[in-house]
Design a binder for these strands. Sequence first.
DNA 1: CTGAAAGCGCTTACAG
DNA 2: CTGAAAGCGCTTACAG
Lengths: 344, 344
Amino acid sequence: MTDPEATPARRRPPTIHDVAREAGISRGTVSRVLQGGHNVSPEALKAVNAAIKKTGYVVNRHARSLVTQRSDSVAFLLTEPQDRFFEDPNFGHLLRGCTAALAEHDIPLLLMIAGTEEERRRIGRYITSGHVDGVLLVSSHSGNPMVELLQQAQMPVVACGKPLGHATATPYVAADDREGARLLVRHLVATGRRRIATITGPLDTPGGVDRLSGYREMLAEAGLGYDPALVVEGDYSRAGGSAGMERLLAQAPDLDAVFVASDLMADGALAALDRAGRSVPHDVAVGGFDDSTVAASARPALTTVRQPWERISGEMVRVLLDLIAGRPPASVILPTELVRRESA
Amino acid sequence: MTDPEATPARRRPPTIHDVAREAGISRGTVSRVLQGGHNVSPEALKAVNAAIKKTGYVVNRHARSLVTQRSDSVAFLLTEPQDRFFEDPNFGHLLRGCTAALAEHDIPLLLMIAGTEEERRRIGRYITSGHVDGVLLVSSHSGNPMVELLQQAQMPVVACGKPLGHATATPYVAADDREGARLLVRHLVATGRRRIATITGPLDTPGGVDRLSGYREMLAEAGLGYDPALVVEGDYSRAGGSAGMERLLAQAPDLDAVFVASDLMADGALAALDRAGRSVPHDVAVGGFDDSTVAASARPALTTVRQPWERISGEMVRVLLDLIAGRPPASVILPTELVRRESA
DNA sequence: CTGAAAGCGCTTACAG
DNA sequence: CTGAAAGCGCTTACAG
């Protein structure tokens, strides 16, 4: 692709050889210093460090990877329907968190978005042929074809959220969805609500399933019966939240609260409630999930359940690096927290 | 980092050598096929392609990069204040578009987020030492320290939006902000509005500056005077839109329209208008900018100016690849389009 | 603790 | 059109 004639002459960066010469020492020893300085005399170490600084040396990762057979890079693989990615601030948090956590280990993040079949194929080939050491998988929907592929290739993988419907377990990191839902619904009950509805997430995602169980459990514990008319399935989008709320209002006009499985949907529900002339929280209390940026800016501001995105992304990276290093897999569940604002 | 004892034995992928043996031909010829098949006999080409398929060969990019001195990868560098990144769907579109456009060239995208000084330093070192061939820069605020660094290192760079305040020009791709603003304001004028306010973007961003000029120009052309009380500066956030609208309402209670420089801010403005008891579009018409996902879901749905994100990202990639290939730089301005919905 | 040397998997003049 | 060979910049046993 490069046309050597036209390319501006960028000077070649210094190599380990330049450093060795500068330090008056062999290249092997320079490399040893780079690897952590074991088995290197203090004087040699000093000389090398000085030479590195003087020459401005930075390791050539391609050369290193070629011999170590490691890429020292990680893929962030997104297989969600793309529109959610644009709308949902959670993805931004996750991406930001993972990038930052990886940066601390000097590991670049390769972003891969598998929307089409063609993309899936290409990405599969790329990942399984050793170009990355592991993958951070963001795809909560069950039946994802990539998961199997990655497993077969024995790729280190950690998922965000428990992957559903896969026999062999992929390690994952997730907030405690069920407990979070219980927290929110308990709050609704405690503030006197009795006809508590819910707009769930998609029921082929763990957030959809587990938040619904938390809701049902807490209702049962509170001695409130389970009424199917109070439950509709959403899709995590704002529009889906609006539509879900309208359906609920039609099915169960006497509802006095809704637990909505995401803030974005809750924001949509707020709009629907507003159009229906129901005041929040007076007529109906609304609870969300995520504590994303929309929660604070919604009118009224949303009472919600906080997902600890920073910790989630940090743990994802930690678990993945462990896996890459050959340590045994682990999944981690992080606690959530009720955030009280105005809507409930 | 890797502990060889514990790592599951992943089989080494086939190399060019395996392909050569399988095809009964030298490694040099295999490589030539990989480079496009020039100077290769039809039979050799066939044999190699068959051998590649049979062995499942995929090129080792590290080895290739080591000799070509190209990384065949590109950085997507974000230097915006991070909160905007989470909230603003535009970033998602841009990221998605760039990833897809690069994927067609088999070029992975490295995501880098320069929030802190420390991150900037690390990223600067990483980028300028040849680990990427070029950078897609997303940072509209002026006075960005990374820009200079990249220029000094002679890194191919293309910015999203015209970089402000840099002597030497960085090629960029942007929507026609001024014309877009004119389109929207003309529409407001045409529908009979006379006291047209604006909430601008930050005035150290091109979108802030240029959309404001478009607004002023069109007002002048319509013979409506310029009234400073009708102008407030925003920050592209939803909360900023709300606050801006409140200020406007206080400064100029008789306003009958607002042109808001982003959909997200417009959504915030809508909320403020609602709280103030002004109906939209009856009492005040509201126009946004972006045509992002919030525009369609806002209540009422926003009349806005469409930014062609798909084209923007496609052009950014095209221009960057041209630059990398040593072709001369170019900046491109893409037309915008008025999208009429309910708010104006 | 250190140096010399092999080798990671490719590309690319260079001969032929 | 093709093969043999050098070399990209590193790491890592292997001797010493």
